[in-house]
Design a binder for these strands. Structure first.
Lengths: 339, 339
DNA sequence: TTGTAAGCGTTATCAT
DNA sequence: ATGATAACGCTTACAA
């Protein structure tokens, strides 16, 4: 493959001139510039980004760490981050941490060896040592949805408490009083926050969450399904359920329909995330949407701005929003006779 | 950050010795080896993969090109490829071609500049010039699901004709005779193959596909939904539909249920791919599964073996399989009275 | 077994 | 505006 020397030789200039033509940061005489460009084309020359990365200390790539690739939410995130990263002339290095602290550390090591220009880190395990390992590092890091206040790292978090409140308000507004919640792993701060917002809002409005009506899941379809089955088996079953992600909500819907119930006529179900799942299932899921596009873009921008020594907010909080679809409706009691 | 020189200095050896200790390909005296390791730990030294990549001409990374990241099928593929790549000590560079030939070429250029160790390329557009551009290249390339016979490139394809046959056999076996098919973009060879297998099998068994009963879609939920609506509006509607991916099948299910039909009692629906969607919707989708795990692993192995100068099959064909779930059942005619 | 030294293909610095 | 030259941090002949 042709190198910058071959181009220089062919164009009758030095390698520095070729480099200048390519980077187009430093002015070059128009005629020599054209000669160089011609040589580049004739030789089908492609600058070697590895070499360039070594010398300029930037391989123009961003590392994205997610706990799970095969997940609708993270898949959307990967897509958005990728678009944004490409737009800025960078590439995406993708790492799956498998929600495993040990794996995370190994992956991090790898990442640092590759000298990426920035790291976007979405962990779903609050015990990870990685954030602390990340503090000394010279590359910009943005943590997504983590709260442990390592003020040294940039943070981009969702207002998870508000997510719970929005869900509660929506269901209360439809007349529901017997409301259940299927949470994610309770050890996750973000799940606890969502639940707190949800239950506090219910309590404030006079319909406190019953202990039997909060079930912990692991964000999987099966967790949703079995939580649904348990809730429906209760003597006085709930008329509405909020699941802390859409996949579990889909599981609950399956459990309900399998049990001969109609959604939302007999029971309302809502989810969270608003990535892919809600439209695919029937009835379409009402959900709490995360501003995933904005989150992804902000993360990339925070990194790029830090790199450029711009002044950057070190902590950004974004608001979720309600997206009403078909899976929630008026409470049975408020439509027909008393429950 | 500490470099190999710092380590060498601290351990009182040369940089080559340090390099040997790290690569552990060349024997090193046990005692010096330990001294070096200690120095590495003390300095928290991490070999720079950019520098190593430049010198050794291998950055230990594999490039994966997919037409769409935010898609259940490709998401699964990305996950499997990543696992396999990591297992072999490589990293994944992900590229979204957006099913756009122009974008593909730009992305390819980028890929070549990065001197990846191999390229796995899954395109969903047969007109792309990329494969021809790829022929001269010195890095191993594996094409997924492309048929245009550039014998210069390695291929890994699904037996798409068999996929159509399996679908037809399944529905015929359940007693269906009025059967429809919602295809992907007809310009794609793989879609044409699936349809050919499907319709030839039906014709062979005396239930040829009616022209009105094949509808072209674009693999999207909306395409499935509107195709479903059109099919259900027909005077004599089909009793079974095969969609060439699961997302469109989900759209058809939604159309059917919205029209007041039961699945599968009134109409059977089946999909293809078997990635994420079939379990999430209700009823769970019967589908034609692609052996995605095997495909992904084979692709990575083909690259690694080529790199190691092993003899490699240049063309691998894998078989799909039927996964029966709840969305298909006996034809209405064959259960109750005649249609 | 270990050290020396020459690159890998760029870019950055300093001249001119 | 352009050229010579020295890095960047590592690997790898080759020599010892």
């Amino acid at each position: 493959m042709a190198s910058i020397r071959d181009v220089a030789r062919r164009a009758g200039v030095s390698t520095s001139t070729v480099s200048r033509v390519i980077s187009r940061k430093i002015p070059v005489d128009k005629r020599t510039g054209e000669r160089v460009m011609r040589a580049i084309c004739e030789l089908d020359y492609r600058p070697n980004l590895i070499a360039s990365g070594l010398r300029s200390r930037s391989a123009r790539s961003i590392g994205l760490l997610v706990p799970r690739i095969a997940d609708p939410f993270f898949m959307q995130m990967i897509d958005y981050v990728d678009r944004c990263v490409i737009e800025h002339g960078f590439n995406l290095l993708l790492f799956n941490t498998h929600s495993d602290p040990a794996f995370e550390e190994q992956v991090l090591d790898n990442l640092l060896r590759r000298h990426v220009d920035g790291i976007i880190f979405s962990s779903v395990s609050d015990e990870s040592r990685v954030p602390s390992l990340l503090i000394g590092v010279e590359v910009p890091v943005v943590m997504l949805d983590r709260v442990r206040d390592d003020a040294k790292l940039m943070h981009l978090v969702l207002n998870n408490r508000m997510a719970g409140e929005l869900a509660a308000e929506h269901l209360l507004g439809l007349g529901h009083r017997r409301i259940a919640c299927v949470t994610g792993p309770r050890t996750l701060h973000l799940c606890a926050e969502r639940l707190a917002g949800f239950s506090e809002c219910l309590a404030r409005r006079g319909s406190p969450l019953e202990p039997d009506f909060t079930i912990e899941g692991d964000f999987s379809l099966d967790a949703g399904r079995s939580a649904g089955e348990r809730l429906l088996a209760a003597q006085r079953r709930p008329t509405a359920v909020w699941a802390q992600n859409d996949v579990m909500a889909a599981g609950i819907v399956k459990a309900a329909i399998s049990a001969g119930l109609r959604v939302p006529e007999d029971i309302s179900v809502m989810g969270m995330d608003d990535a892919m799942i809600p439209e695919v299932v029937h009835p379409s899921l009402t959900t709490i949407a995360q501003p995933l596009k904005e989150m992804s873009e902000r993360a990339v921008e925070m990194i790029l701005e830090t790199r450029a020594n711009a002044v950057v907010d070190r902590r950004v909080i974004l608001d979720p929003s309600l997206v009403a679809r078909q899976s929630t409706g008026a409470a049975p009691e408020s439509r027909g006779g008393a429950g």
